[in-house]
Design a protein around this nucleic acid. Structure first.
Lengths: 186, 186
DNA sequence: ATTGAAGACTTCATCAGTAAAGTTCGAAGC
DNA sequence: GCTTCGAACTTTACTGATGAAGTCTTCAAT
Protein backbone atom coordinates (compact mmCIF):
# COMPACT_ATOMS: atom_id res chain seq x y z
CA UNK A 1 0.00 0.00 0.00
CA UNK A 2 1.21 3.44 -0.89
CA UNK A 3 1.26 6.43 1.41
CA UNK A 4 -1.99 6.64 3.29
CA UNK A 5 -4.03 4.62 0.87
CA UNK A 6 -4.66 1.03 1.85
CA UNK A 7 -7.47 -1.29 1.06
CA UNK A 8 -10.03 -0.65 3.75
CA UNK A 9 -8.93 0.22 7.23
CA UNK A 10 -10.72 1.99 10.01
CA UNK A 11 -10.14 5.70 9.87
CA UNK A 12 -7.42 5.70 12.55
CA UNK A 13 -5.11 3.92 10.22
CA UNK A 14 -4.83 7.10 8.24
CA UNK A 15 -2.38 8.83 10.42
CA UNK A 16 -2.19 12.53 10.52
CA UNK A 17 1.25 12.94 9.01
CA UNK A 18 0.38 10.87 5.99
CA UNK A 19 -2.64 12.99 5.41
CA UNK A 20 -0.71 16.23 5.68
CA UNK A 21 1.85 14.80 3.30
CA UNK A 22 -0.92 14.07 0.83
CA UNK A 23 -2.14 17.63 0.99
CA UNK A 24 1.36 18.91 0.35
CA UNK A 25 1.76 16.60 -2.57
CA UNK A 26 -1.53 17.68 -4.14
CA UNK A 27 -1.45 21.32 -3.20
CA UNK A 28 2.10 22.51 -2.58
CA UNK A 29 1.16 26.01 -1.52
CA UNK A 30 -0.39 24.68 1.65
CA UNK A 31 1.37 25.48 4.93
CA UNK A 32 1.94 22.13 6.64
CA UNK A 33 2.03 23.67 10.08
CA UNK A 34 -1.31 25.33 9.60
CA UNK A 35 -2.79 22.25 8.09
CA UNK A 36 -1.55 20.14 10.94
CA UNK A 37 -3.22 22.30 13.52
CA UNK A 38 -6.47 22.49 11.62
CA UNK A 39 -6.64 18.82 10.82
CA UNK A 40 -5.77 17.76 14.35
CA UNK A 41 -8.41 20.09 15.67
CA UNK A 42 -11.10 18.66 13.45
CA UNK A 43 -10.11 15.13 14.15
CA UNK A 44 -9.93 15.60 17.88
CA UNK A 45 -13.33 17.14 17.93
CA UNK A 46 -14.79 14.28 16.01
CA UNK A 47 -13.33 11.75 18.36
CA UNK A 48 -14.70 13.59 21.31
CA UNK A 49 -18.15 13.69 19.81
CA UNK A 50 -18.01 9.98 19.25
CA UNK A 51 -17.00 9.48 22.86
CA UNK A 52 -19.84 11.67 24.10
CA UNK A 53 -22.22 9.84 21.83
CA UNK A 54 -21.31 6.50 23.33
CA UNK A 55 -21.85 7.71 26.83
CA UNK A 56 -25.20 9.15 25.88
CA UNK A 57 -26.31 5.90 24.38
CA UNK A 58 -25.55 4.27 27.68
CA UNK A 59 -27.82 6.76 29.37
CA UNK A 60 -30.55 6.24 26.84
CA UNK A 61 -30.64 9.65 25.22
CA UNK A 62 -29.44 11.03 21.93
CA UNK A 63 -26.97 13.78 21.29
CA UNK A 64 -29.83 15.90 20.03
CA UNK A 65 -31.70 15.52 23.28
CA UNK A 66 -28.58 16.21 25.30
CA UNK A 67 -28.16 19.54 23.60
CA UNK A 68 -31.60 20.61 24.65
CA UNK A 69 -31.02 19.59 28.25
CA UNK A 70 -27.75 21.51 28.29
CA UNK A 71 -29.35 24.64 26.96
CA UNK A 72 -32.05 24.52 29.60
CA UNK A 73 -29.61 23.90 32.41
CA UNK A 74 -27.38 26.75 31.33
CA UNK A 75 -30.14 29.33 31.69
CA UNK A 76 -30.61 28.25 35.29
CA UNK A 77 -33.74 27.89 37.36
CA UNK A 78 -36.48 27.53 36.65
CA UNK A 79 -34.95 25.96 33.54
CA UNK A 80 -37.38 27.43 31.06
CA UNK A 81 -37.07 28.50 27.46
CA UNK A 82 -39.37 28.82 24.47
CA UNK A 83 -38.99 26.56 21.45
CA UNK A 84 -37.89 29.43 19.26
CA UNK A 85 -35.22 30.52 21.67
CA UNK A 86 -34.02 26.96 22.06
CA UNK A 87 -33.86 26.60 18.31
CA UNK A 88 -31.71 29.71 18.01
CA UNK A 89 -29.37 28.56 20.73
CA UNK A 90 -28.90 25.16 19.19
CA UNK A 91 -28.64 26.53 15.70
CA UNK A 92 -31.50 24.63 14.18
CA UNK A 93 -34.86 25.45 12.72
CA UNK A 94 -37.97 25.88 14.83
CA UNK A 95 -39.51 22.96 13.02
CA UNK A 96 -36.76 20.65 14.15
CA UNK A 97 -37.13 21.96 17.67
CA UNK A 98 -40.81 21.11 17.71
CA UNK A 99 -39.99 17.49 17.06
CA UNK A 100 -37.14 17.33 19.52
CA UNK A 101 -39.39 18.66 22.19
CA UNK A 102 -42.02 16.09 21.27
CA UNK A 103 -39.53 13.36 21.98
CA UNK A 104 -38.29 14.87 25.19
CA UNK A 105 -41.83 15.33 26.44
CA UNK A 106 -42.76 11.72 25.81
CA UNK A 107 -39.62 10.69 27.70
CA UNK A 108 -40.61 12.93 30.57
CA UNK A 109 -37.44 15.02 30.49
CA UNK A 110 -39.19 18.30 29.79
CA UNK A 111 -42.73 19.65 29.89
CA UNK A 112 -44.37 21.82 27.27
CA UNK A 113 -47.14 24.23 28.15
CA UNK A 114 -48.62 27.40 26.77
CA UNK A 115 -47.58 30.61 28.41
CA UNK A 116 -50.80 31.88 29.97
CA UNK A 117 -49.48 35.42 30.05
CA UNK A 118 -48.97 35.42 26.32
CA UNK A 119 -50.80 32.56 24.78
CA UNK A 120 -48.87 32.58 21.55
CA UNK A 121 -45.80 31.51 23.43
CA UNK A 122 -44.87 28.06 24.60
CA UNK A 123 -42.74 27.27 27.61
CA UNK A 124 -40.44 24.30 27.69
CA UNK A 125 -39.32 23.43 31.19
CA UNK A 126 -36.87 20.86 32.43
CA UNK A 127 -38.42 18.27 34.73
CA UNK A 128 -36.65 16.93 37.80
CA UNK A 129 -36.06 13.79 35.84
CA UNK A 130 -34.55 15.81 33.02
CA UNK A 131 -32.23 17.62 35.38
CA UNK A 132 -31.16 14.35 36.92
CA UNK A 133 -30.47 12.98 33.45
CA UNK A 134 -28.34 15.97 32.67
CA UNK A 135 -26.38 15.48 35.88
CA UNK A 136 -25.66 11.91 34.89
CA UNK A 137 -24.39 12.97 31.48
CA UNK A 138 -22.31 15.66 33.08
CA UNK A 139 -20.65 13.22 35.45
CA UNK A 140 -19.67 10.98 32.59
CA UNK A 141 -18.57 13.85 30.39
CA UNK A 142 -16.47 15.38 33.14
CA UNK A 143 -14.75 12.08 33.79
CA UNK A 144 -13.98 11.68 30.12
CA UNK A 145 -12.69 15.21 29.84
CA UNK A 146 -10.49 14.90 32.88
CA UNK A 147 -9.03 11.77 31.43
CA UNK A 148 -8.51 13.42 28.07
CA UNK A 149 -6.50 16.28 29.54
CA UNK A 150 -4.61 14.07 31.95
CA UNK A 151 -1.34 14.32 30.07
CA UNK A 152 -1.37 18.10 30.24
CA UNK A 153 -0.08 19.92 33.26
CA UNK A 154 -1.78 23.02 34.56
CA UNK A 155 0.38 25.40 32.61
CA UNK A 156 -0.27 23.53 29.40
CA UNK A 157 -3.97 23.49 30.01
CA UNK A 158 -3.97 27.20 30.64
CA UNK A 159 -1.94 27.84 27.52
CA UNK A 160 -4.22 25.69 25.44
CA UNK A 161 -7.31 27.38 26.79
CA UNK A 162 -5.85 30.79 26.17
CA UNK A 163 -4.89 30.02 22.60
CA UNK A 164 -8.23 28.44 21.78
CA UNK A 165 -10.04 31.47 23.09
CA UNK A 166 -7.90 33.73 20.99
CA UNK A 167 -8.77 31.70 17.92
CA UNK A 168 -12.39 31.67 18.87
CA UNK A 169 -12.43 35.40 19.23
CA UNK A 170 -10.92 35.73 15.82
CA UNK A 171 -13.53 33.60 14.11
CA UNK A 172 -16.39 35.17 15.96
CA UNK A 173 -15.39 38.70 15.09
CA UNK A 174 -14.58 37.93 11.49
CA UNK A 175 -17.95 36.28 11.04
CA UNK A 176 -20.88 38.42 12.15
CA UNK A 177 -22.65 35.05 11.98
CA UNK A 178 -25.46 36.35 9.80
CA UNK A 179 -27.93 34.90 12.25
CA UNK A 180 -27.60 31.42 10.97
CA UNK A 181 -27.17 27.76 11.28
CA UNK A 182 -24.71 26.83 13.97
CA UNK A 183 -24.65 23.05 13.95
CA UNK A 184 -24.91 22.70 17.69
CA UNK A 185 -23.90 24.33 20.90
CA UNK A 186 -22.42 23.12 24.11
CA UNK B 1 -33.94 37.47 32.53
CA UNK B 2 -31.21 36.01 34.61
CA UNK B 3 -27.60 35.29 33.84
CA UNK B 4 -26.95 34.29 30.28
CA UNK B 5 -30.56 33.84 29.35
CA UNK B 6 -31.89 36.62 27.17
CA UNK B 7 -34.89 36.64 24.98
CA UNK B 8 -33.58 35.36 21.70
CA UNK B 9 -30.09 36.20 20.66
CA UNK B 10 -27.74 34.58 18.25
CA UNK B 11 -25.55 31.99 19.91
CA UNK B 12 -22.52 34.25 20.15
CA UNK B 13 -24.22 36.33 22.73
CA UNK B 14 -23.72 33.51 25.17
CA UNK B 15 -20.15 34.13 25.93
CA UNK B 16 -17.90 31.41 27.05
CA UNK B 17 -17.33 32.59 30.59
CA UNK B 18 -21.01 32.85 31.33
CA UNK B 19 -21.49 29.33 30.13
CA UNK B 20 -18.67 27.99 32.26
CA UNK B 21 -20.09 29.86 35.21
CA UNK B 22 -23.43 28.18 34.61
CA UNK B 23 -21.83 24.77 34.63
CA UNK B 24 -20.09 25.55 37.90
CA UNK B 25 -23.32 26.75 39.41
CA UNK B 26 -25.22 23.65 38.37
CA UNK B 27 -22.48 21.11 38.85
CA UNK B 28 -19.85 22.35 41.31
CA UNK B 29 -17.56 19.36 40.95
CA UNK B 30 -16.68 20.41 37.42
CA UNK B 31 -13.15 21.69 36.82
CA UNK B 32 -13.56 25.09 35.17
CA UNK B 33 -10.20 24.92 33.49
CA UNK B 34 -11.04 21.63 31.87
CA UNK B 35 -14.47 22.79 30.91
CA UNK B 36 -13.09 25.92 29.39
CA UNK B 37 -10.74 24.03 27.14
CA UNK B 38 -13.36 21.53 26.08
CA UNK B 39 -16.04 24.09 25.45
CA UNK B 40 -13.75 26.39 23.51
CA UNK B 41 -12.62 23.47 21.43
CA UNK B 42 -16.14 22.47 20.54
CA UNK B 43 -17.19 25.98 19.80
CA UNK B 44 -14.17 26.75 17.68
CA UNK B 45 -14.73 23.68 15.65
CA UNK B 46 -18.32 24.55 15.05
CA UNK B 47 -17.43 27.99 13.86
CA UNK B 48 -14.87 26.61 11.51
CA UNK B 49 -17.36 24.20 10.04
CA UNK B 50 -19.77 27.01 9.46
CA UNK B 51 -17.05 28.96 7.73
CA UNK B 52 -16.13 26.04 5.51
CA UNK B 53 -19.79 25.50 4.77
CA UNK B 54 -20.20 29.03 3.51
CA UNK B 55 -17.25 28.74 1.21
CA UNK B 56 -18.56 25.49 -0.15
CA UNK B 57 -21.92 26.99 -0.89
CA UNK B 58 -20.15 29.62 -2.94
CA UNK B 59 -18.51 26.86 -4.92
CA UNK B 60 -21.77 25.02 -5.37
CA UNK B 61 -21.04 21.85 -3.44
CA UNK B 62 -22.09 20.54 -0.06
CA UNK B 63 -19.95 19.59 2.86
CA UNK B 64 -20.87 15.97 2.24
CA UNK B 65 -19.58 16.16 -1.31
CA UNK B 66 -16.44 17.93 -0.21
CA UNK B 67 -15.58 15.08 2.13
CA UNK B 68 -15.70 12.62 -0.71
CA UNK B 69 -13.48 14.75 -2.90
CA UNK B 70 -10.96 15.11 -0.07
CA UNK B 71 -10.84 11.39 0.51
CA UNK B 72 -10.17 10.72 -3.15
CA UNK B 73 -7.49 13.37 -3.40
CA UNK B 74 -5.71 12.07 -0.32
CA UNK B 75 -5.17 8.64 -1.82
CA UNK B 76 -3.42 10.24 -4.77
CA UNK B 77 -3.47 9.35 -8.43
CA UNK B 78 -5.35 7.90 -10.04
CA UNK B 79 -7.77 9.11 -7.38
CA UNK B 80 -9.75 5.90 -7.09
CA UNK B 81 -11.58 4.21 -4.24
CA UNK B 82 -14.50 1.83 -3.87
CA UNK B 83 -17.75 2.95 -2.28
CA UNK B 84 -17.22 0.69 0.71
CA UNK B 85 -13.76 2.02 1.35
CA UNK B 86 -14.98 5.57 0.99
CA UNK B 87 -17.76 4.86 3.43
CA UNK B 88 -15.31 3.57 5.99
CA UNK B 89 -13.05 6.55 5.59
CA UNK B 90 -15.86 9.02 5.98
CA UNK B 91 -17.46 7.09 8.79
CA UNK B 92 -20.82 6.53 7.23
CA UNK B 93 -22.80 3.58 5.99
CA UNK B 94 -22.35 2.11 2.53
CA UNK B 95 -25.94 3.01 1.79
CA UNK B 96 -25.30 6.67 2.42
CA UNK B 97 -22.23 6.47 0.24
CA UNK B 98 -24.24 5.10 -2.64
CA UNK B 99 -26.40 8.20 -2.62
CA UNK B 100 -23.53 10.62 -2.23
CA UNK B 101 -21.84 9.09 -5.19
CA UNK B 102 -25.07 9.36 -7.17
CA UNK B 103 -25.05 13.08 -6.61
CA UNK B 104 -21.38 13.51 -7.39
CA UNK B 105 -21.76 11.54 -10.60
CA UNK B 106 -24.63 13.68 -11.83
CA UNK B 107 -22.51 16.74 -11.11
CA UNK B 108 -19.63 15.29 -13.05
CA UNK B 109 -17.17 15.39 -10.16
CA UNK B 110 -16.56 11.65 -10.07
CA UNK B 111 -17.24 8.66 -12.28
CA UNK B 112 -18.59 5.31 -11.17
CA UNK B 113 -17.79 2.15 -13.05
CA UNK B 114 -17.65 -1.56 -12.33
CA UNK B 115 -14.24 -3.04 -11.80
CA UNK B 116 -13.84 -5.36 -14.76
CA UNK B 117 -11.24 -7.39 -12.89
CA UNK B 118 -13.70 -8.15 -10.14
CA UNK B 119 -17.18 -7.35 -11.22
CA UNK B 120 -18.63 -7.20 -7.73
CA UNK B 121 -16.50 -4.16 -7.07
CA UNK B 122 -17.20 -0.60 -8.08
CA UNK B 123 -14.58 2.06 -8.73
CA UNK B 124 -15.22 5.68 -7.97
CA UNK B 125 -12.75 7.97 -9.65
CA UNK B 126 -12.27 11.69 -9.40
CA UNK B 127 -12.76 13.50 -12.69
CA UNK B 128 -10.56 16.40 -13.78
CA UNK B 129 -13.47 18.63 -12.99
CA UNK B 130 -13.68 17.08 -9.52
CA UNK B 131 -10.01 17.63 -8.88
CA UNK B 132 -10.30 21.21 -10.03
CA UNK B 133 -13.23 21.70 -7.70
CA UNK B 134 -11.21 20.32 -4.84
CA UNK B 135 -8.37 22.71 -5.65
CA UNK B 136 -10.77 25.61 -5.48
CA UNK B 137 -12.07 24.53 -2.10
CA UNK B 138 -8.53 24.05 -0.89
CA UNK B 139 -7.52 27.54 -1.92
CA UNK B 140 -10.40 29.04 0.00
CA UNK B 141 -9.90 26.80 3.00
CA UNK B 142 -6.18 27.53 3.15
CA UNK B 143 -6.83 31.25 3.04
CA UNK B 144 -9.34 30.97 5.82
CA UNK B 145 -7.02 28.85 7.93
CA UNK B 146 -4.09 31.17 7.45
CA UNK B 147 -6.25 34.02 8.55
CA UNK B 148 -7.52 32.09 11.54
CA UNK B 149 -4.03 31.40 12.84
CA UNK B 150 -2.72 34.83 12.01
CA UNK B 151 -2.53 35.95 15.63
CA UNK B 152 -0.33 33.02 16.57
CA UNK B 153 3.40 33.15 16.07
CA UNK B 154 5.32 30.14 14.86
CA UNK B 155 6.17 28.93 18.34
CA UNK B 156 2.56 29.13 19.41
CA UNK B 157 1.40 27.28 16.36
CA UNK B 158 3.90 24.56 16.99
CA UNK B 159 2.90 24.31 20.63
CA UNK B 160 -0.77 24.14 19.73
CA UNK B 161 -0.16 21.49 17.13
CA UNK B 162 1.91 19.44 19.50
CA UNK B 163 -0.67 19.58 22.28
CA UNK B 164 -3.54 18.75 19.98
CA UNK B 165 -1.69 15.74 18.69
CA UNK B 166 -1.04 14.56 22.19
CA UNK B 167 -4.71 14.82 22.98
CA UNK B 168 -5.59 13.09 19.76
CA UNK B 169 -3.28 10.25 20.53
CA UNK B 170 -4.87 9.87 23.91
CA UNK B 171 -8.41 9.62 22.54
CA UNK B 172 -7.40 7.31 19.75
CA UNK B 173 -5.64 4.88 22.00
CA UNK B 174 -8.28 4.94 24.70
CA UNK B 175 -10.94 4.18 22.13
CA UNK B 176 -10.17 1.20 19.93
CA UNK B 177 -12.90 2.79 17.85
CA UNK B 178 -14.91 -0.40 17.64
CA UNK B 179 -14.86 -0.04 13.88
CA UNK B 180 -17.62 2.43 13.86
CA UNK B 181 -19.29 5.60 12.95
CA UNK B 182 -16.95 8.51 12.80
CA UNK B 183 -19.11 11.45 11.80
CA UNK B 184 -16.74 12.63 9.12
CA UNK B 185 -13.11 12.86 8.29
CA UNK B 186 -10.88 15.53 6.88
C1' DA C 1 -65.16 47.03 17.73
C1' DT C 2 -62.75 45.62 13.42
C1' DT C 3 -59.24 45.02 10.64
C1' DG C 4 -54.40 44.34 9.47
C1' DA C 5 -49.67 43.18 10.37
C1' DA C 6 -46.35 40.71 12.87
C1' DG C 7 -44.74 37.06 15.81
C1' DA C 8 -44.44 32.10 17.59
C1' DC C 9 -45.19 27.76 16.89
C1' DT C 10 -46.71 23.70 14.07
C1' DT C 11 -47.60 21.07 9.84
C1' DC C 12 -46.28 19.36 5.30
C1' DA C 13 -43.22 17.94 1.65
C1' DT C 14 -38.67 16.75 0.74
C1' DC C 15 -33.92 15.37 1.59
C1' DA C 16 -29.95 12.83 3.61
C1' DG C 17 -28.84 9.55 6.90
C1' DT C 18 -29.19 4.61 9.24
C1' DA C 19 -30.36 -0.37 9.60
C1' DA C 20 -31.60 -4.31 7.47
C1' DA C 21 -32.88 -7.02 3.59
C1' DG C 22 -31.84 -7.95 -1.24
C1' DT C 23 -28.86 -8.73 -5.40
C1' DT C 24 -24.92 -9.94 -7.83
C1' DC C 25 -20.53 -11.79 -8.38
C1' DG C 26 -16.33 -14.50 -6.96
C1' DA C 27 -14.18 -18.29 -4.53
C1' DA C 28 -13.94 -22.59 -2.08
C1' DG C 29 -15.62 -27.39 -1.28
C1' DC C 30 -17.66 -31.67 -2.69
C1' DG D 1 -19.27 -28.56 -12.67
C1' DC D 2 -22.60 -27.39 -9.17
C1' DT D 3 -23.45 -25.46 -4.92
C1' DT D 4 -22.80 -22.79 -1.06
C1' DC D 5 -20.63 -19.11 1.43
C1' DG D 6 -19.18 -14.59 1.67
C1' DA D 7 -18.11 -9.93 0.00
C1' DA D 8 -19.59 -5.46 -2.18
C1' DC D 9 -22.88 -2.74 -3.40
C1' DT D 10 -27.87 -1.30 -3.85
C1' DT D 11 -32.64 -0.99 -2.40
C1' DT D 12 -36.27 -0.31 1.03
C1' DA D 13 -38.42 1.41 5.21
C1' DC D 14 -37.91 4.61 8.58
C1' DT D 15 -35.93 8.65 11.30
C1' DG D 16 -34.65 13.49 11.98
C1' DA D 17 -33.47 17.66 9.73
C1' DT D 18 -34.78 21.67 6.53
C1' DG D 19 -37.78 25.28 4.17
C1' DA D 20 -42.07 26.92 3.14
C1' DA D 21 -46.75 27.35 4.08
C1' DG D 22 -50.32 27.45 7.60
C1' DT D 23 -52.60 28.54 12.19
C1' DC D 24 -53.31 31.02 16.11
C1' DT D 25 -52.54 35.04 19.11
C1' DT D 26 -51.33 39.67 20.12
C1' DC D 27 -50.86 44.56 19.21
C1' DA D 28 -51.70 48.75 16.79
C1' DA D 29 -54.52 51.59 14.02
C1' DT D 30 -58.57 52.82 12.23
Amino acid sequence: MTAAAGSAGTPEELDLDAQIAAYQREFPEVDPQVEKVVTALGRLNRRMNVAYGRQLVDLGISNAEWEVLKALVVVGRPYRLGPGDLAKRLGLTPAAMTHRIDRLVTEGLVTRERDEANRVRVIVELTDEGREKWLQTMRLAAAFEDDLLQDLNTAERAALGEILIRLLRRVETSQPDAGGRLEDLD
